[in-house]
Design a protein around this nucleic acid. Sequence first.
DNA 1: AAGTATGTTGCAACATATGCAACACCCATT
DNA 2: AATGGGTGTTGCATATGTTGCAACATACTT
Lengths: 252, 252
Amino acid sequence: MSQTVDRALSILPLLAQGPADLGQVAERLGVHKSTALRLLRTLHEHGLVYRQRDQRYRLGARLFALAQEAVENLDVREIAHSHLVALNDRCGHTVHLAVYEEQEVLYIDKVESRYPVRMYSRIGKPVAITVAAVAKLLLADLTEPERRAVAEKLDYPLYTPRSTPNAAAFLKELAVVREQGWATDLGGHEESINCIGAPIRGADGRVIAAMSVSAPNVVVTAEELLTLLPLVRRTAETISREYSGANRPRKA
Amino acid sequence: MSQTVDRALSILPLLAQGPADLGQVAERLGVHKSTALRLLRTLHEHGLVYRQRDQRYRLGARLFALAQEAVENLDVREIAHSHLVALNDRCGHTVHLAVYEEQEVLYIDKVESRYPVRMYSRIGKPVAITVAAVAKLLLADLTEPERRAVAEKLDYPLYTPRSTPNAAAFLKELAVVREQGWATDLGGHEESINCIGAPIRGADGRVIAAMSVSAPNVVVTAEELLTLLPLVRRTAETISREYSGANRPRKA
DNA sequence: AAGTATGTTGCAACATATGCAACACCCATT
DNA sequence: AATGGGTGTTGCATATGTTGCAACATACTT
């Protein structure tokens, strides 16, 4: 809606891929060098962009501070955290918390496994949306037309042979998840890693976040992991209740 | 340099303090509602701002993704991480890694203490710059006029009676740190927590990052903590060497 | 049903962002 | 030393894009 701002903001994802110099930025934006310079300067003044000693630009530190403050404003996270830690204490595996926003699912909290073999993931990283247990839970709660719209827009990368192959399969899986109230990812993202997850609901029953427990095959089999399901669901329900209590209906 | 972009970006820190509606944003920006609307829409399209169900705006999820990618581009962090983990394995305490950028010091990595009593800190959070060991190390490496300029611009909050009280004391402390090549924070931020830190240097000898080990009094006394100093310094030097190797002088 | 608060749109007037061309600078190369 | 290509930077005239306005929606109160 605002061309100038639009151009300026387009610089950020561009720099996220790695440092770039003025010429590169200008070229990839399709604008004159002097224009790019002025946009970069403005971003710089706000700390979103940093100029390295070789003159190239990269993303700036203020970005962290902002992301930090943003995450601290998410009350689900605050409420959930201690419960996630408690769950990790009991089972030892990696615990994740994720939300859905603007067609993306992303982790907003994580408690690391106590086992030496850890899976790679990171708060803030977009989740593999077609296979992750938390993604299924969050999308399953959308209305039917929304689900279809999203499902059709997605790519279905075959991380493994067990990955969700296409929109039809994904929609079917979402229906199952919606019905049963929990979800799994059995080797769909990485061959040797399994997850089980449960939804966290607001006072109105809508899914506002999802949590999961992940563990590699070498530590526990999928069957053993599934025995944790009741515990995971109970934890999710506890968080839901606490969240609903804190966020009274119709009060802002 | 660009008024429009400047205004748009000013919205972000504003929203960092909490959700706000259109009117509030417009007022605090000093522009007309319609202008604010268009700026917010642009931010929204880029995912930096999210519109909650009560129509209010808050910071968006893309911000995390960006911050995440930003931190992954910092090669110091990548190189240092395994060494920080190893250090934590040996001593058990919380280990931090921090950098200086644009008048701010911030944590870019952290390995949690193995002890049950943990200190509060978070990657991305700006560091208490006048007292933290890592901050002293990073600032001590600036040129004398730079140090003076920064020292005079800072506030000196008295977190505890042992906090650095003013610019003069801070500059004196920086001189000491610069001389000895390591730094401490003995109860300057929180009464019961002590830290020791060491600098990480690039190929040209300049300090590019700083690391520290922190532990509360109830776990180890300050004297005991200081016995770890040689280990901390060795770790910092190892990281420095590796970093200097990876970043050859005058290349890229 | 009228009234208030909020978000939204179209438009005309102006301010502002734009590309250009010229300049400054750094470091290779000869 | 001097030349040349590469980069980043500045001033300026043009017109493009942004602005505030006023009118319109819409939702929630009284």
